[in-house]
Structures are given as structure tokens and as C-alpha cells.
């Protein structure tokens, strides 16, 4: 794939880049513009979620009226949800591996499995939010409620968008519009999906596990 390498100052100085033109049109940098855009976007998303998590930490323990975290959290339930989201990262990477091996049937199976695991996580989040409201915690109740619902709600919206992307890829594959040559599309959606997983790794530890 890297037989044709552009003579940029970098390649002249260091020789051909082993990553160059790996399944994408030639670019000045030798790496995919779409992947650069996705990594740049994910870098900026770190700042967005950093702001939301920092706000939660800032308001942690500052609520003057309940319910407080210890009154509403169900750690075993959230642990199962976290496990489900973690396993969806495995199915996502198996979907990418399948299309790279030109196995479109397995690609569709793993894409659907990832979307279903994501939907299970969202269903768990809806159940959790509902149970919190029944216990008297809403977004208006106190500082904990405001910061918690905004942070986890933003994450839930990201997961939901990821599910829409996965189902779109599945539909494209069903119609024959996702040939193995376009594996990079699956890789880019996968990067987004893994990102929502790593954000949840941080939220799960900081918000739920650290008392």
C-alpha cells in the first residue's frame, strides 16, 4: 500500500513512512485526513468532558439538601452497566477486524451486537435516572442533581449518537454500500465508540466508586 509515497520533507529526511496511504487517498502527511479530524475532535471532547467532570467535583459535597449520592447510588447495577459498555468496545473492535478480513457477514453481526450493548447501557441509564427521580433527585433538586444529570446526560447523548452511527453502518453494509475498501469508516466510528467508553471509565471511578 505504501509503494507510492509522496516526497514530503519528512519522507525525504526519514525514508518512506510505514503507515503511509494505509487504505486512504494520498495526503500530504501520509496519514488519513479523516482519522486526523476524528482524533482532533476526540482531543477537544476531552476538554468538554473535563469541564463536566470538574463541575461535578466542584459541587461534590456542597449540596445543602438531599438526596445525597449515598442515598441514590446503586453500585452493583452501575457496575453491570459499565461492564456492558466495556464489552461493547470489544465487539466494536471485532467488527473492525471483520471488515479488514473482508468478512462482511461477521461485520454486521458485531456492529449489531455493539449497538445492542450500547442500547442496553442506555436502557440502564434511563432506569437509573427514573429511580433517582422516584427517590426525589431531579436536575433542580440540588447541586449534586444538577451536575450529575448534566454530566451523565451528556455522556448518554454521546452513546445514543454512537448507536445511530452503528445502525447506519449496519444498514449501509446490508445494502452493499460498505465494502471492505471502506474499512476506515468503521475504524473512525469505532474511535468515537471507544472514546465514549473511556469517558465512562473515568466517570464510573470518579463519580460512583470514589466516595
Amino acid at each position: 500500500m505504501s509503494a507510492v509515497t509522496e516526497e514530503t520533507p519528512d519522507t525525504i529526511a526519514h525514508g518512506p513512512d510505514p503507515h503511509a496511504h494505509d487504505g486512504h487517498p494520498p495526503t500530504n502527511t501520509g496519514v488519513s485526513n479523516a482519522k486526523i479530524a476524528m482524533w482532533g475532535f476526540l482531543g477537544s471532547e476531552c476538554l468538554l468532558f473535563g469541564a463536566l467532570i470538574s463541575t461535578y467535583l466542584l459541587y461534590r459535597g456542597r449540596s445543602v439538601v438531599g438526596p445525597f449520592p449515598k442515598d441514590v447510588y446503586d453500585i452493583p447495577f452501575t457496575s453491570v452497566s459499565s461492564f456492558v459498555l466495556l464489552m461493547s468496545s470489544l465487539t466494536m473492535v471485532l467488527a473492525l477486524s471483520s471488515i479488514q478480513r473482508r468478512d462482511e457477514r461477521r461485520l454486521r453481526v458485531w456492529l449489531l451486537a455493539t449497538a445492542l450493548l450500547g442500547a442496553t447501557f442506555i436502557a440502564g441509564q434511563i432506569y437509573e435516572f427514573t429511580s433517582f427521580v422516584h427517590k426525589g433527585l431531579t436536575i433542580h433538586t440540588n447541586l449534586f442533581g444538577s451536575s450529575f444529570f448534566v454530566m451523565t446526560g451528556f455522556h448518554g447523548v454521546h452513546v445514543t449518537l454512537g448507536i445511530v452511527m452503528l445502525i447506519t453502518l449496519w444498514g449501509m453494509s446490508m445494502r452493499g454500500q460498505l465494502p471492505p475498501e471502506n474499512a476506515e469508516v468503521v475504524e473512525i466510528v469505532g474511535l468515537y465508540w471507544h472514546f465514549v467508553d473511556i469517558v465512562w471509565i473515568v466517570i464510573f471511578t470518579i463519580v460512583y466508586l470514589i466516595k
Partner: peptide, 29 residues
């Protein structure tokens, strides 16, 4: 976090450009 980024997101195996881009976001945040 690092394991998912390195293995599932392939930063360990991909071009260093991607590592730098993501590192900028993480370090800034």
C-alpha cells in the same frame, strides 16, 4: 483508560500524529 486507547483505539500501532493530537487534548484537559 490507557489500555483501551492503546489497543482498541490502536494508538500503540498507529501513526504518532494521532497520539500527539489526542495527548494535546488530554494534557490540556
Amino acid at each position: 483508560f490507557a489500555t483501551v486507547v492503546m489497543y482498541f483505539m490502536h494508538l500503540k500501532f498507529d501513526h504518532p500524529y494521532f497520539r500527539r493530537l489526542f495527548a494535546i487534548g488530554i494534557v490540556l484537559a
